[in-house]
Design a protein around this nucleic acid. Structure first.
Lengths: 258, 258
DNA sequence: GCATGTTTGTGTAGGTCATAAACAGATTAT
DNA sequence: ATAATCTGTTTATGACCTACACAAACATGC
Protein backbone atom coordinates (compact mmCIF):
# COMPACT_ATOMS: atom_id res chain seq x y z
CA UNK A 1 0.00 0.00 0.00
CA UNK A 2 2.50 2.62 1.11
CA UNK A 3 5.19 3.21 -1.48
CA UNK A 4 8.61 2.28 -0.30
CA UNK A 5 12.06 3.49 -1.20
CA UNK A 6 15.15 1.40 -1.80
CA UNK A 7 15.86 1.52 1.94
CA UNK A 8 12.56 -0.19 2.56
CA UNK A 9 11.20 2.86 4.32
CA UNK A 10 7.94 4.38 3.17
CA UNK A 11 8.64 7.26 0.82
CA UNK A 12 6.83 9.73 3.03
CA UNK A 13 9.17 8.89 5.89
CA UNK A 14 12.25 9.34 3.75
CA UNK A 15 11.00 12.66 2.44
CA UNK A 16 10.02 13.99 5.84
CA UNK A 17 13.43 13.17 7.27
CA UNK A 18 15.10 14.77 4.26
CA UNK A 19 16.58 11.45 3.29
CA UNK A 20 15.34 11.58 -0.27
CA UNK A 21 18.22 12.09 -2.69
CA UNK A 22 17.55 14.77 -5.27
CA UNK A 23 18.01 13.87 -8.92
CA UNK A 24 21.10 15.38 -10.56
CA UNK A 25 20.78 14.94 -14.27
CA UNK A 26 17.71 16.80 -15.45
CA UNK A 27 16.65 20.42 -15.24
CA UNK A 28 16.69 21.97 -11.80
CA UNK A 29 13.47 21.69 -9.89
CA UNK A 30 11.15 24.65 -9.64
CA UNK A 31 9.28 23.26 -6.69
CA UNK A 32 10.01 21.54 -3.42
CA UNK A 33 8.28 19.23 -1.01
CA UNK A 34 8.26 21.96 1.58
CA UNK A 35 6.46 24.47 -0.58
CA UNK A 36 3.91 21.90 -1.71
CA UNK A 37 3.15 20.77 1.82
CA UNK A 38 2.97 24.36 2.98
CA UNK A 39 0.50 25.26 0.25
CA UNK A 40 -1.57 22.19 1.04
CA UNK A 41 -1.68 23.10 4.72
CA UNK A 42 -2.81 26.57 3.82
CA UNK A 43 -5.70 25.18 1.83
CA UNK A 44 -6.65 22.86 4.67
CA UNK A 45 -6.48 25.69 7.19
CA UNK A 46 -8.68 27.93 5.11
CA UNK A 47 -11.19 25.58 3.53
CA UNK A 48 -10.87 22.30 5.35
CA UNK A 49 -9.22 19.04 4.50
CA UNK A 50 -11.85 18.12 1.95
CA UNK A 51 -10.80 21.14 -0.12
CA UNK A 52 -7.28 19.79 -0.45
CA UNK A 53 -7.25 18.53 -4.01
CA UNK A 54 -4.18 18.26 -6.15
CA UNK A 55 -5.54 21.09 -8.25
CA UNK A 56 -6.27 23.32 -5.27
CA UNK A 57 -2.72 22.84 -4.04
CA UNK A 58 -1.02 23.31 -7.39
CA UNK A 59 -2.87 26.35 -8.61
CA UNK A 60 -1.74 28.92 -6.00
CA UNK A 61 1.79 27.73 -6.63
CA UNK A 62 1.45 28.51 -10.30
CA UNK A 63 1.95 24.91 -11.28
CA UNK A 64 -0.21 22.34 -12.96
CA UNK A 65 -1.92 19.57 -11.11
CA UNK A 66 0.25 16.89 -12.60
CA UNK A 67 3.48 18.65 -11.79
CA UNK A 68 2.97 17.78 -8.13
CA UNK A 69 3.42 14.14 -8.99
CA UNK A 70 7.07 14.83 -9.74
CA UNK A 71 7.51 15.45 -6.01
CA UNK A 72 4.84 13.35 -4.39
CA UNK A 73 3.94 9.92 -5.60
CA UNK A 74 0.30 10.11 -4.60
CA UNK A 75 -2.18 12.24 -2.76
CA UNK A 76 -1.95 9.82 0.11
CA UNK A 77 1.73 10.58 0.47
CA UNK A 78 0.99 14.29 0.45
CA UNK A 79 -1.54 13.80 3.22
CA UNK A 80 1.01 11.98 5.31
CA UNK A 81 3.52 14.76 4.84
CA UNK A 82 0.88 17.29 5.84
CA UNK A 83 0.04 15.22 8.88
CA UNK A 84 3.58 15.40 10.11
CA UNK A 85 4.22 19.00 9.15
CA UNK A 86 1.04 20.13 10.90
CA UNK A 87 2.17 18.68 14.20
CA UNK A 88 4.32 21.66 15.10
CA UNK A 89 6.01 21.12 18.43
CA UNK A 90 7.89 24.22 19.62
CA UNK A 91 11.65 24.07 19.29
CA UNK A 92 12.41 24.55 22.96
CA UNK A 93 9.91 23.57 25.59
CA UNK A 94 10.55 24.31 29.24
CA UNK A 95 9.44 21.28 31.19
CA UNK A 96 8.90 21.57 34.95
CA UNK A 97 10.95 19.18 37.03
CA UNK A 98 7.93 17.61 38.67
CA UNK A 99 6.82 14.90 36.29
CA UNK A 100 3.14 15.57 36.90
CA UNK A 101 3.41 19.18 35.87
CA UNK A 102 5.77 18.25 33.07
CA UNK A 103 3.25 15.79 31.65
CA UNK A 104 0.58 18.44 31.84
CA UNK A 105 2.74 20.89 29.94
CA UNK A 106 3.59 18.23 27.40
CA UNK A 107 -0.06 17.34 26.87
CA UNK A 108 -0.83 21.03 26.50
CA UNK A 109 1.82 21.41 23.84
CA UNK A 110 0.40 18.52 21.87
CA UNK A 111 -3.11 19.85 22.37
CA UNK A 112 -2.19 23.24 20.98
CA UNK A 113 -0.50 21.62 18.03
CA UNK A 114 -3.69 19.76 17.18
CA UNK A 115 -5.80 22.82 17.81
CA UNK A 116 -3.74 24.86 15.39
CA UNK A 117 -4.63 22.45 12.58
CA UNK A 118 -7.64 20.44 13.69
CA UNK A 119 -7.98 18.80 10.28
CA UNK A 120 -4.94 16.60 10.95
CA UNK A 121 -7.24 14.44 13.01
CA UNK A 122 -9.24 13.65 9.90
CA UNK A 123 -6.22 12.09 8.25
CA UNK A 124 -6.09 8.39 9.07
CA UNK A 125 -3.02 7.87 11.21
CA UNK A 126 -1.44 4.68 10.04
CA UNK A 127 1.56 3.01 11.60
CA UNK A 128 3.79 5.09 9.37
CA UNK A 129 2.81 8.25 11.20
CA UNK A 130 4.79 7.27 14.24
CA UNK A 131 8.01 7.17 12.24
CA UNK A 132 7.69 10.75 11.13
CA UNK A 133 9.98 13.43 12.53
CA UNK A 134 7.51 15.42 14.56
CA UNK A 135 5.95 12.34 16.09
CA UNK A 136 9.40 11.27 17.13
CA UNK A 137 10.10 14.71 18.55
CA UNK A 138 6.85 14.66 20.47
CA UNK A 139 7.58 11.20 21.85
CA UNK A 140 11.05 12.28 22.86
CA UNK A 141 9.66 15.30 24.66
CA UNK A 142 7.08 13.19 26.43
CA UNK A 143 9.74 10.79 27.60
CA UNK A 144 11.72 13.76 28.84
CA UNK A 145 8.76 14.86 30.90
CA UNK A 146 8.76 11.47 32.59
CA UNK A 147 12.48 11.15 33.06
CA UNK A 148 12.22 11.28 36.86
CA UNK A 149 9.30 8.90 36.96
CA UNK A 150 10.56 5.46 37.93
CA UNK A 151 8.62 3.33 35.49
CA UNK A 152 9.68 0.90 32.81
CA UNK A 153 10.29 2.24 29.34
CA UNK A 154 7.50 0.34 27.70
CA UNK A 155 5.08 1.69 30.28
CA UNK A 156 6.25 5.20 29.50
CA UNK A 157 5.73 4.60 25.81
CA UNK A 158 2.28 3.36 26.64
CA UNK A 159 1.57 6.46 28.69
CA UNK A 160 2.63 8.63 25.79
CA UNK A 161 0.27 6.76 23.49
CA UNK A 162 -2.60 6.94 25.95
CA UNK A 163 -2.20 10.63 26.59
CA UNK A 164 -1.72 11.48 22.93
CA UNK A 165 -4.86 9.64 22.07
CA UNK A 166 -6.80 11.33 24.80
CA UNK A 167 -5.65 14.74 23.66
CA UNK A 168 -6.44 13.96 20.06
CA UNK A 169 -9.91 12.70 20.89
CA UNK A 170 -10.61 15.71 23.00
CA UNK A 171 -9.62 18.15 20.30
CA UNK A 172 -11.67 16.18 17.82
CA UNK A 173 -14.70 16.44 20.06
CA UNK A 174 -14.08 20.12 20.51
CA UNK A 175 -13.86 20.65 16.79
CA UNK A 176 -17.05 18.71 16.15
CA UNK A 177 -19.02 20.69 18.65
CA UNK A 178 -17.71 23.93 17.24
CA UNK A 179 -19.49 23.26 13.97
CA UNK A 180 -22.66 25.20 14.51
CA UNK A 181 -25.76 24.07 12.72
CA UNK A 182 -25.03 20.46 13.39
CA UNK A 183 -25.12 20.46 17.14
CA UNK A 184 -27.99 22.86 17.38
CA UNK A 185 -30.98 20.62 17.79
CA UNK A 186 -34.11 22.69 18.34
CA UNK A 187 -36.28 22.13 21.39
CA UNK A 188 -38.80 20.22 19.32
CA UNK A 189 -36.19 17.66 18.29
CA UNK A 190 -35.05 17.29 21.88
CA UNK A 191 -38.62 16.66 22.97
CA UNK A 192 -38.96 13.96 20.35
CA UNK A 193 -35.75 12.36 21.51
CA UNK A 194 -36.90 12.43 25.10
CA UNK A 195 -39.81 10.24 24.03
CA UNK A 196 -37.54 7.42 22.95
CA UNK A 197 -34.93 7.82 25.66
CA UNK A 198 -37.27 6.71 28.39
CA UNK A 199 -36.33 5.75 31.94
CA UNK A 200 -37.68 2.26 31.23
CA UNK A 201 -35.37 1.61 28.34
CA UNK A 202 -32.41 3.63 29.60
CA UNK A 203 -32.73 3.65 33.37
CA UNK A 204 -29.31 5.09 34.02
CA UNK A 205 -29.07 7.62 31.24
CA UNK A 206 -32.56 9.10 31.23
CA UNK A 207 -32.33 10.70 34.68
CA UNK A 208 -29.05 12.29 33.73
CA UNK A 209 -30.56 13.86 30.66
CA UNK A 210 -33.53 15.06 32.66
CA UNK A 211 -31.20 16.71 35.12
CA UNK A 212 -30.94 19.50 32.63
CA UNK A 213 -27.26 20.05 32.37
CA UNK A 214 -27.11 18.07 29.18
CA UNK A 215 -30.27 19.16 27.50
CA UNK A 216 -30.91 22.77 27.09
CA UNK A 217 -32.58 24.28 24.11
CA UNK A 218 -29.59 24.18 21.88
CA UNK A 219 -27.04 21.68 23.00
CA UNK A 220 -28.20 18.16 23.65
CA UNK A 221 -26.65 15.27 25.49
CA UNK A 222 -23.08 16.26 25.13
CA UNK A 223 -21.24 19.03 26.79
CA UNK A 224 -20.74 22.49 25.43
CA UNK A 225 -17.45 24.31 25.06
CA UNK A 226 -16.67 24.51 28.75
CA UNK A 227 -17.51 20.86 29.07
CA UNK A 228 -14.76 20.02 26.65
CA UNK A 229 -12.14 21.59 28.83
CA UNK A 230 -13.62 19.67 31.73
CA UNK A 231 -13.41 16.44 29.78
CA UNK A 232 -9.84 17.17 28.78
CA UNK A 233 -8.83 17.89 32.37
CA UNK A 234 -10.72 14.91 33.70
CA UNK A 235 -8.98 12.46 31.43
CA UNK A 236 -5.58 13.92 32.07
CA UNK A 237 -6.15 14.04 35.81
CA UNK A 238 -7.28 10.44 35.90
CA UNK A 239 -4.23 9.28 33.98
CA UNK A 240 -1.78 11.28 36.06
CA UNK A 241 -3.48 10.27 39.26
CA UNK A 242 -3.28 6.67 38.15
CA UNK A 243 0.41 7.11 37.46
CA UNK A 244 0.91 8.45 40.96
CA UNK A 245 -0.44 5.35 42.58
CA UNK A 246 1.58 3.26 40.17
CA UNK A 247 4.64 5.18 41.26
CA UNK A 248 3.91 4.72 44.93
CA UNK A 249 3.25 1.03 44.52
CA UNK A 250 6.61 0.72 42.86
CA UNK A 251 6.07 -1.19 39.66
CA UNK A 252 9.20 -3.02 38.47
CA UNK A 253 11.45 -0.74 36.48
CA UNK A 254 13.41 -1.57 33.38
CA UNK A 255 14.89 1.65 32.23
CA UNK A 256 17.27 1.64 29.30
CA UNK A 257 18.43 5.15 30.08
CA UNK A 258 19.86 3.56 33.23
CA UNK B 1 -24.53 20.12 6.50
CA UNK B 2 -26.48 17.28 8.04
CA UNK B 3 -29.95 16.99 6.57
CA UNK B 4 -32.66 17.61 9.10
CA UNK B 5 -36.24 16.42 9.33
CA UNK B 6 -39.27 18.47 10.28
CA UNK B 7 -38.54 17.72 13.92
CA UNK B 8 -35.20 19.43 13.58
CA UNK B 9 -33.36 16.19 14.15
CA UNK B 10 -30.79 15.02 11.66
CA UNK B 11 -32.41 12.53 9.27
CA UNK B 12 -29.96 9.82 10.22
CA UNK B 13 -31.05 10.10 13.84
CA UNK B 14 -34.71 9.87 12.96
CA UNK B 15 -34.14 6.85 10.74
CA UNK B 16 -32.01 5.02 13.26
CA UNK B 17 -34.62 5.48 15.96
CA UNK B 18 -37.32 4.31 13.58
CA UNK B 19 -38.96 7.69 13.77
CA UNK B 20 -39.13 8.21 10.04
CA UNK B 21 -42.71 8.00 8.80
CA UNK B 22 -43.10 5.83 5.72
CA UNK B 23 -44.83 7.34 2.71
CA UNK B 24 -48.34 6.05 2.07
CA UNK B 25 -49.36 7.18 -1.34
CA UNK B 26 -47.09 5.61 -3.90
CA UNK B 27 -46.16 2.01 -4.68
CA UNK B 28 -44.95 -0.10 -1.80
CA UNK B 29 -41.25 -0.03 -1.20
CA UNK B 30 -39.07 -2.89 -2.32
CA UNK B 31 -36.22 -1.99 -0.07
CA UNK B 32 -35.61 -0.87 3.50
CA UNK B 33 -33.06 1.09 5.47
CA UNK B 34 -32.16 -2.04 7.37
CA UNK B 35 -31.35 -4.09 4.28
CA UNK B 36 -29.33 -1.28 2.76
CA UNK B 37 -27.30 -0.73 5.89
CA UNK B 38 -26.79 -4.45 6.27
CA UNK B 39 -25.53 -4.78 2.72
CA UNK B 40 -23.23 -1.82 3.21
CA UNK B 41 -21.81 -3.32 6.38
CA UNK B 42 -21.18 -6.55 4.55
CA UNK B 43 -19.20 -4.74 1.91
CA UNK B 44 -17.19 -2.91 4.55
CA UNK B 45 -16.50 -6.11 6.44
CA UNK B 46 -15.30 -7.89 3.34
CA UNK B 47 -13.48 -5.23 1.37
CA UNK B 48 -13.00 -2.30 3.70
CA UNK B 49 -14.78 0.98 4.07
CA UNK B 50 -13.24 2.40 0.94
CA UNK B 51 -15.05 -0.25 -1.08
CA UNK B 52 -18.40 1.01 0.14
CA UNK B 53 -19.70 2.85 -2.89
CA UNK B 54 -23.33 3.37 -3.67
CA UNK B 55 -22.93 0.98 -6.56
CA UNK B 56 -21.22 -1.70 -4.49
CA UNK B 57 -24.04 -1.57 -1.98
CA UNK B 58 -26.89 -1.54 -4.48
CA UNK B 59 -25.68 -4.28 -6.79
CA UNK B 60 -25.85 -7.29 -4.43
CA UNK B 61 -29.34 -6.13 -3.50
CA UNK B 62 -30.38 -6.27 -7.12
CA UNK B 63 -31.10 -2.59 -7.26
CA UNK B 64 -29.66 0.30 -9.15
CA UNK B 65 -27.29 2.79 -7.61
CA UNK B 66 -29.77 5.60 -7.71
CA UNK B 67 -32.54 3.63 -6.09
CA UNK B 68 -30.70 3.88 -2.79
CA UNK B 69 -31.33 7.59 -2.78
CA UNK B 70 -35.02 6.90 -2.24
CA UNK B 71 -34.08 5.66 1.22
CA UNK B 72 -30.94 7.54 2.08
CA UNK B 73 -30.46 11.17 1.24
CA UNK B 74 -26.72 10.96 0.79
CA UNK B 75 -23.81 8.64 1.21
CA UNK B 76 -22.89 10.53 4.32
CA UNK B 77 -26.21 9.58 5.86
CA UNK B 78 -25.62 5.96 4.96
CA UNK B 79 -22.23 6.07 6.64
CA UNK B 80 -23.77 7.43 9.79
CA UNK B 81 -26.36 4.67 9.83
CA UNK B 82 -23.60 2.12 9.32
CA UNK B 83 -21.65 3.69 12.15
CA UNK B 84 -24.47 3.18 14.54
CA UNK B 85 -25.53 -0.23 13.31
CA UNK B 86 -21.97 -1.53 13.55
CA UNK B 87 -21.76 -0.66 17.24
CA UNK B 88 -23.49 -3.81 18.36
CA UNK B 89 -23.81 -3.91 22.12
CA UNK B 90 -25.20 -7.22 23.41
CA UNK B 91 -28.80 -7.14 24.52
CA UNK B 92 -28.15 -8.23 28.06
CA UNK B 93 -24.81 -7.60 29.71
CA UNK B 94 -24.09 -8.94 33.18
CA UNK B 95 -22.24 -6.23 35.04
CA UNK B 96 -20.36 -7.11 38.22
CA UNK B 97 -21.39 -5.15 41.26
CA UNK B 98 -17.95 -3.76 41.89
CA UNK B 99 -17.72 -0.67 39.75
CA UNK B 100 -14.11 -1.31 38.86
CA UNK B 101 -14.84 -4.70 37.40
CA UNK B 102 -18.04 -3.42 35.89
CA UNK B 103 -16.17 -0.68 34.05
CA UNK B 104 -13.70 -3.24 32.80
CA UNK B 105 -16.48 -5.41 31.47
CA UNK B 106 -18.14 -2.41 29.89
CA UNK B 107 -14.92 -1.32 28.21
CA UNK B 108 -14.46 -4.87 26.98
CA UNK B 109 -17.91 -4.91 25.45
CA UNK B 110 -17.24 -1.69 23.61
CA UNK B 111 -13.86 -2.97 22.54
CA UNK B 112 -15.32 -6.12 21.07
CA UNK B 113 -17.93 -4.10 19.26
CA UNK B 114 -15.24 -2.03 17.60
CA UNK B 115 -13.14 -5.08 16.89
CA UNK B 116 -16.01 -6.76 15.10
CA UNK B 117 -16.15 -3.89 12.59
CA UNK B 118 -12.90 -1.99 12.83
CA UNK B 119 -13.78 0.20 9.85
CA UNK B 120 -16.29 2.16 11.97
CA UNK B 121 -13.34 4.03 13.35
CA UNK B 122 -12.60 5.40 9.90
CA UNK B 123 -15.97 7.10 9.76
CA UNK B 124 -15.70 10.60 11.18
CA UNK B 125 -17.75 10.65 14.34
CA UNK B 126 -19.55 13.96 14.41
CA UNK B 127 -21.71 15.22 17.23
CA UNK B 128 -24.65 13.47 15.66
CA UNK B 129 -23.16 10.07 16.44
CA UNK B 130 -23.85 10.47 20.12
CA UNK B 131 -27.58 10.78 19.51
CA UNK B 132 -27.78 7.43 17.77
CA UNK B 133 -29.46 4.49 19.45
CA UNK B 134 -26.46 2.30 20.07
CA UNK B 135 -24.36 5.14 21.39
CA UNK B 136 -27.15 5.90 23.80
CA UNK B 137 -27.37 2.26 24.79
CA UNK B 138 -23.63 2.11 25.35
CA UNK B 139 -23.70 5.26 27.45
CA UNK B 140 -26.57 3.92 29.49
CA UNK B 141 -24.70 0.71 30.12
CA UNK B 142 -21.59 2.60 31.11
CA UNK B 143 -23.54 4.69 33.58
CA UNK B 144 -25.01 1.50 34.97
CA UNK B 145 -21.52 0.18 35.56
CA UNK B 146 -20.79 3.26 37.66
CA UNK B 147 -24.06 3.36 39.53
CA UNK B 148 -22.39 2.64 42.86
CA UNK B 149 -19.59 5.07 42.26
CA UNK B 150 -20.27 8.27 44.19
CA UNK B 151 -19.34 10.83 41.59
CA UNK B 152 -21.24 13.62 39.90
CA UNK B 153 -23.15 12.83 36.74
CA UNK B 154 -21.12 15.07 34.53
CA UNK B 155 -17.97 13.40 35.76
CA UNK B 156 -19.43 10.03 34.90
CA UNK B 157 -20.32 11.23 31.45
CA UNK B 158 -16.76 12.44 31.12
CA UNK B 159 -15.43 9.07 32.23
CA UNK B 160 -17.55 7.36 29.60
CA UNK B 161 -16.17 9.65 26.95
CA UNK B 162 -12.60 9.18 28.09
CA UNK B 163 -12.84 5.41 28.24
CA UNK B 164 -14.67 5.14 24.92
CA UNK B 165 -12.03 7.21 23.27
CA UNK B 166 -9.27 5.17 24.79
CA UNK B 167 -10.86 1.94 23.61
CA UNK B 168 -11.44 3.32 20.15
CA UNK B 169 -7.88 4.55 19.82
CA UNK B 170 -6.54 1.26 21.01
CA UNK B 171 -8.53 -0.75 18.50
CA UNK B 172 -7.51 1.66 15.80
CA UNK B 173 -3.88 1.14 16.67
CA UNK B 174 -4.38 -2.58 16.71
CA UNK B 175 -6.00 -2.51 13.31
CA UNK B 176 -3.23 -0.39 11.85
CA UNK B 177 -0.52 -2.69 13.08
CA UNK B 178 -2.36 -5.72 11.77
CA UNK B 179 -1.91 -4.48 8.22
CA UNK B 180 1.20 -6.36 7.23
CA UNK B 181 3.40 -4.88 4.61
CA UNK B 182 3.11 -1.45 6.07
CA UNK B 183 4.57 -2.04 9.45
CA UNK B 184 7.20 -4.40 8.21
CA UNK B 185 10.21 -2.19 7.79
CA UNK B 186 13.23 -4.23 6.79
CA UNK B 187 16.37 -4.11 8.88
CA UNK B 188 18.01 -1.81 6.36
CA UNK B 189 15.32 0.79 6.81
CA UNK B 190 15.58 0.56 10.57
CA UNK B 191 19.31 1.09 10.35
CA UNK B 192 18.77 4.20 8.27
CA UNK B 193 16.27 5.49 10.78
CA UNK B 194 18.67 4.86 13.63
CA UNK B 195 21.05 7.28 11.94
CA UNK B 196 18.65 10.18 12.25
CA UNK B 197 17.23 9.27 15.63
CA UNK B 198 20.45 10.00 17.42
CA UNK B 199 20.95 10.36 21.16
CA UNK B 200 22.05 13.93 20.58
CA UNK B 201 18.84 14.97 18.91
CA UNK B 202 16.51 12.72 20.85
CA UNK B 203 18.20 12.11 24.16
CA UNK B 204 15.22 10.48 25.81
CA UNK B 205 13.88 8.43 22.93
CA UNK B 206 17.05 7.07 21.39
CA UNK B 207 18.06 4.92 24.37
CA UNK B 208 14.61 3.41 24.46
CA UNK B 209 14.83 2.41 20.84
CA UNK B 210 18.28 0.98 21.36
CA UNK B 211 16.98 -1.14 24.21
CA UNK B 212 15.69 -3.45 21.56
CA UNK B 213 12.16 -4.04 22.63
CA UNK B 214 10.91 -1.60 20.10
CA UNK B 215 13.14 -2.36 17.19
CA UNK B 216 13.49 -5.86 16.02
CA UNK B 217 13.89 -6.84 12.43
CA UNK B 218 10.30 -6.44 11.50
CA UNK B 219 8.44 -4.21 13.89
CA UNK B 220 9.89 -0.81 14.59
CA UNK B 221 9.27 1.74 17.29
CA UNK B 222 5.79 0.69 18.18
CA UNK B 223 4.62 -2.38 19.95
CA UNK B 224 3.55 -5.60 18.36
CA UNK B 225 0.28 -7.40 18.98
CA UNK B 226 0.95 -8.17 22.62
CA UNK B 227 1.95 -4.60 23.16
CA UNK B 228 -1.48 -3.45 22.09
CA UNK B 229 -3.13 -5.45 24.83
CA UNK B 230 -0.63 -3.97 27.22
CA UNK B 231 -1.44 -0.48 26.04
CA UNK B 232 -5.15 -1.15 26.33
CA UNK B 233 -4.77 -2.47 29.87
CA UNK B 234 -2.43 0.31 30.87
CA UNK B 235 -4.81 3.04 29.83
CA UNK B 236 -7.77 1.39 31.45
CA UNK B 237 -5.85 0.69 34.63
CA UNK B 238 -4.66 4.26 34.87
CA UNK B 239 -8.16 5.62 34.44
CA UNK B 240 -9.72 3.23 36.93
CA UNK B 241 -6.92 3.77 39.39
CA UNK B 242 -7.42 7.49 39.02
CA UNK B 243 -11.10 7.06 39.69
CA UNK B 244 -10.31 5.15 42.86
CA UNK B 245 -8.35 7.99 44.36
CA UNK B 246 -11.05 10.38 43.25
CA UNK B 247 -13.54 8.19 45.05
CA UNK B 248 -11.46 8.08 48.20
CA UNK B 249 -10.89 11.80 48.21
CA UNK B 250 -14.63 12.25 48.00
CA UNK B 251 -15.29 14.62 45.18
CA UNK B 252 -18.58 16.53 45.54
CA UNK B 253 -21.50 14.50 44.24
CA UNK B 254 -24.48 15.71 42.31
CA UNK B 255 -26.38 12.64 41.29
CA UNK B 256 -29.67 13.07 39.49
CA UNK B 257 -30.57 9.43 40.02
CA UNK B 258 -31.00 10.40 43.67
C1' DG C 1 31.60 21.15 -27.72
C1' DC C 2 28.39 17.34 -28.60
C1' DA C 3 25.77 13.30 -28.12
C1' DT C 4 23.09 10.83 -24.73
C1' DG C 5 20.28 9.81 -21.26
C1' DT C 6 17.59 11.86 -17.49
C1' DT C 7 14.42 14.85 -15.44
C1' DT C 8 10.99 18.58 -15.53
C1' DG C 9 6.63 20.64 -16.35
C1' DT C 10 2.55 20.11 -19.21
C1' DG C 11 -1.45 18.47 -21.95
C1' DT C 12 -4.53 14.84 -22.71
C1' DA C 13 -7.32 11.23 -21.50
C1' DG C 14 -9.40 7.50 -18.83
C1' DG C 15 -11.71 5.70 -14.94
C1' DT C 16 -14.27 6.02 -10.55
C1' DC C 17 -17.77 8.30 -7.83
C1' DA C 18 -21.56 10.93 -5.96
C1' DT C 19 -25.65 12.75 -7.27
C1' DA C 20 -28.99 15.94 -9.96
C1' DA C 21 -32.86 15.62 -13.33
C1' DA C 22 -36.38 13.68 -15.91
C1' DC C 23 -39.57 9.79 -16.77
C1' DA C 24 -42.71 5.76 -16.88
C1' DG C 25 -45.33 2.79 -14.11
C1' DA C 26 -47.62 1.80 -9.59
C1' DT C 27 -50.56 2.97 -5.88
C1' DT C 28 -53.51 5.61 -3.09
C1' DA C 29 -56.63 9.63 -1.94
C1' DT C 30 -60.54 12.41 -3.45
C1' DA D 1 -61.92 8.32 -12.71
C1' DT D 2 -58.64 11.75 -11.83
C1' DA D 3 -55.07 13.74 -9.57
C1' DA D 4 -51.37 13.47 -6.60
C1' DT D 5 -47.56 11.01 -5.01
C1' DC D 6 -44.08 7.68 -4.73
C1' DT D 7 -40.83 4.04 -6.76
C1' DG D 8 -37.15 2.42 -9.47
C1' DT D 9 -34.56 3.52 -13.58
C1' DT D 10 -31.95 5.88 -17.21
C1' DT D 11 -29.16 9.48 -18.45
C1' DA D 12 -26.03 13.08 -17.63
C1' DT D 13 -22.86 16.18 -15.10
C1' DG D 14 -19.11 17.47 -12.58
C1' DA D 15 -15.26 16.38 -9.19
C1' DC D 16 -11.30 13.91 -8.60
C1' DC D 17 -7.01 11.05 -8.98
C1' DT D 18 -3.67 9.63 -11.90
C1' DA D 19 -1.51 6.94 -16.11
C1' DC D 20 0.82 8.23 -20.28
C1' DA D 21 3.27 10.62 -23.71
C1' DC D 22 5.88 14.70 -25.22
C1' DA D 23 9.00 18.61 -25.69
C1' DA D 24 12.26 21.44 -23.56
C1' DA D 25 16.11 21.72 -20.13
C1' DC D 26 20.13 20.12 -18.12
C1' DA D 27 24.26 17.20 -16.60
C1' DT D 28 27.67 13.87 -17.87
C1' DG D 29 30.98 11.34 -20.70
C1' DC D 30 33.29 11.54 -25.02
Amino acid sequence: MAETTDTGLPRAVAIAWGMQEVPQRGPSRGMSHERIVKAAIEVADNEGLAAVTMQAVAKPLGFTTMSLYRYVSSKDELLRLMQDAALTIPEKVELPTDWREALRVWAGVVREAYRAHPWVLEIPRGPVSILMPNSVRAANLGLGAMKDLPLADDVKIGVILVISQHVASSVELERDLAQEGIVAVPAEGVAVLAEVITPERFPHLAPVMKSGNYIDDEVPVVENGDGIDAEYDLGLNLIISGLETMEQQGTPVNDATK
